Amino acid sequence: MTRTDTPPAWDERTQLATFLDYVRDTARAKCEGVSPEDAVKAPLPGSPLMTLCGLISHLRWVEFWWFQVVFLGGELVGPLADCTDDDPDPEMRLAVLTPLAQLLAEYEEQSARFRELVAAHDLDDEARKPVRDGLKVNLRWVILHVIEETARHNGHLDIVRELADGVTGD
C-alpha cells in the first residue's frame, strides 16, 4: 500500500479526499502483519475495549454514522443502533469476535462507497440530519470531522500496536 498526503491536484476537494484516504490507509497500515491474538489484545488497563479490532470497527462505524446517517439521513443500523449509557461502544466490544482481516475488508468496502459519495456531492451540500442544537453541517465539515477523528484514533492504533507486539511505524 502506498500512502501519501500529497494530493495530485490542489483544489479543496482533492486535498480533502487525499487526506481522508491517507488517514484511512494509515489506520490499515497500523494493522499490517499483526497476529490474530494481538489484534484483540487490550493492553491499556483503563481501556478494555481499545484493541486493534475495536479501533478499526469504531472507525468503520464512525464513517457510517457521519456519511450515511447524518449526511444522507439514512437509518441507524448495526452496533451503533444498540448504544446505551451502559454500553456506549458496542462496535468496539463486539469487534473482538470478528477477525481483523474481515473488519479491515468491511472498512475498505465502506470507504470506497463513501469515496463515491464525496465525489458525487458538493462540499457545501447540507447534511439531512442536524448534529447538536439543531445545527446542520455541510459535507465539507463531515469530511474534516472524519479526518480529525481517524487521525486521532491512528494515535491510539500506534500505542495499542506497540504495546501488543512491539511493532512501531510511520
Rank of each mutant, 00 (worst) to 15 (best):
N154C: 12
D133Y: 14
I56A: 04
A164P: 01
Q110P: 05
D165Y: 03
L135M: 13
M92F: 02
R152Y: 00
R115F: 09
A105K: 15
A151N: 09
W61Q: 11
Q15S: 15
V118Y: 08
P99I: 02
P88Y: 01
S35A: 10
Q15T: 15
K136E: 10
A81K: 04
F64N: 04
L49W: 08
V34G: 04
T84V: 06
Y107H: 07
A151V: 07
L49F: 09
T6C: 13
P88V: 01
L72Y: 04
F67K: 04
E126H: 14
I143K: 05
L20V: 02
L144V: 14
H153P: 03
K41L: 10
G169A: 02
D158W: 05
W61D: 15
T84A: 01
L49A: 08
M1K: 10
T84F: 07
D11S: 00
P88A: 01
L76N: 05
E12Y: 10
H121Q: 12
L80S: 12
L157S: 00
R140C: 06
D38E: 08
L49Q: 10
V160E: 01
V70H: 06
L100Y: 05
P99L: 07
L59G: 05
D21I: 05
H121Y: 08
E75F: 06
M1R: 12
